[in-house]
């Protein structure tokens, strides 16, 4: 590169403080900085996209819980694979999350005391998920439960419903 070999000729343009040389130099600087800035921002966005997976290899959030006849009235059944309680009361079925709303421990159903207890920090819930005591901030959420065409229970863990909503069979 011969650009620096003749400082007298090119030096004028690049270092001169008069004419439009200044603006041109600044303009080039800003174009460069701007382009690199955009590249940086774009790279951040693309990296974010790259890091958010487009498909998941996780168990389905909708699952079949078998025939309603499997569950006696006045029963709480813990489905370990799905971490859900299927509760059958005289008024109908509801599905209660077994994951404690405090810090995500899996709770346990204590049939003797008829409570759902969290082993981590001592939260206690009723069988419909309402909080009795403990650090848990919210009651256990209820999931949407319905019947399939062939008469099996279908629970959708992505869909939370109000506690009052029960499935009558």
């Amino acid at each position: 590169m011969s650009d620096i070999k003749h400082p007298s000729s090119t030096g004028e343009t690049s270092t001169g403080q008069r004419g439009n040389g200044v603006t041109r130099r600044d303009f080039l600087n800003e174009v460069t900085l701007g382009a690199l800035g955009i590249a940086g921002l774009g790279a951040a966005v693309v990296t974010y996209q790259y890091f958010s997976p487009n498909v998941l290899f996780e168990p389905s959030t909708t699952f079949r819980a078998g025939s309603p006849d499997l569950y006696p009235v006045h029963s709480v059944s813990f489905l370990q694979d799905q971490q859900v309680y299927i509760v059958r009361m005289p008024e109908g079925f509801y599905a209660v999350s077994a994951v404690c709303t405090h810090l995500g421990c899996v709770t346990q159903w204590k049939p003797d005391a008829e409570i759902i207890a969290c082993p981590c920090h001592g939260s206690k819930f009723k069988q419909d998920g309402t909080k009795i005591e403990g650090p848990a901030p919210r009651p256990l959420p209820h999931f949407a439960i319905s019947l399939t065409a062939d008469g099996e229970l279908l629970v959708d863990k992505l869909q939370a419903v109000k506690a009052a909503q029960v499935l009558k069979v």
């Binding site: 996209q49 790259y50 997976p53 487009n54 498909v55």
Partner: peptide, 13 residues
């Protein structure tokens, strides 16, 4: 295969 078909810009990387 997932890089090729699923991941955003995976095939490019």
């Amino acid at each position: 295969k997932d890089l090729r078909f699923v991941v955003s810009n995976g095939v490019f990387l």
